[in-house]
């Protein structure tokens, strides 16, 4: 009995140890989405890891993976100012395996990072996708469900995700955003779009929209508060009207009937 119960546990342990050894596989799982399959990065948006002197230091990599990085950064003469989300789900052993893999990679990597293919996005299409006026091809939720950007939309956007007004600046412009949208690095967003990823064209359109919107003047929050109040009032009056109709239709007692007859 006892052995049977512990068997799956032991199997899981053995499997995880085996995985930890495989730094390349772990890189593919956790890092490649943003930093690229060849660790080449995206110029101006996401720093390359191949040939990056910082990855030589194992402790730095482990810390970066598990606690994230933010703030200005300069790699190979290009400055970056993005945010790498913390991934505490990656164990320390796994992070070390990744660091090990990156260390081996850096020496061999000599060629210059290939420039990302530029797809020209349509900001109007992006706006429609953002607002949910046009459905995402693979059935993902429209961005507005969680995010707000410069107060676009009738009642503004959601407040679950971050305000995306400055996303273009934070996340490496159109190119960075486009890459990020196809392979979201943020755990919540990754879960939300699991199995229904954005297509390349959609990502490009959304990126173009986000860049365009970052140059707009954000609409004041009071506008949306006002709209909320008006919409709330309309909703409330509908409810009250419904109640009033129900109240009028209830069986009336004789006292009420007599009083209403007397008033007439």
């Amino acid at each position: 009995m006892k052995g049977k119960r512990f068997f799956p546990l032991a199997l899981l342990l053995a499997l995880s140890v085996a995985l930890a050894q495989d730094g390349k596989a772990l890189y593919g799982q956790y890092c490649a989405a943003c930093h690229g399959p060849e660790a080449q990065g995206i110029p101006g948006a996401i720093p390359p890891l191949a040939g990056n002197p910082r990855v030589q230091e194992e402790a730095y990599v482990v810390k970066a993976v598990r606690e994230g990085i933010s703030g200005p950064l300069e790699v190979g003469g290009v400055s970056y100012s993005g945010v790498m989300p913390p991934m505490p789900q990656v164990s320390e052993a796994q992070a070390r395996a990744i660091a090990q893999y990156l260390k081996g990679l850096s020496g061999a990597q000599a060629e210059a990072p290939a420039p990302a293919p530029q797809v020209q996005g349509d900001p109007a299409l992006g706006r429609a996708l953002y607002l949910g006026q046009k459905a995402l091809q693979n059935g993902g939720a429209p961005c507005q469900a969680c995010h707000t950007v410069a107060g676009v939309g009738f009642l503004g956007g959601g407040s679950l995700g971050r305000d995306l007004t400055d996303a273009a600046k934070r996340l490496g412009g159109e190119a960075g955003l486009s890459a990020l949208l196809q392979n979201p690095a943020f755990p919540v967003m990754r879960e939300a779009y699991k199995g229904r990823p954005l297509t390349e064209a959609e990502a490009a359109a959304l990126a173009a929209f986000l860049v365009q919107v970052s140059n707009e003047v954000p609409r004041p929050a009071s506008l949306y508060l006002g709209r909320y109040l008006v919409a709330g009032m309309v909703f409330l009056s509908i409810l009250l009207l419904y109640q009033a109709i129900l109240w009028q239709l209830r069986p009336k007692s004789l006292a009420e009937r007599i009083q209403s007859q007397l008033r007439r």
Partner: peptide
């Protein structure tokens, strides 16, 4: 009608 008014109206 009695008191309370119409108390025999058990539908009400």
């Amino acid at each position: 009608a009695g008191y309370p008014t119409g108390w025999e109206d058990q539908d009400r």
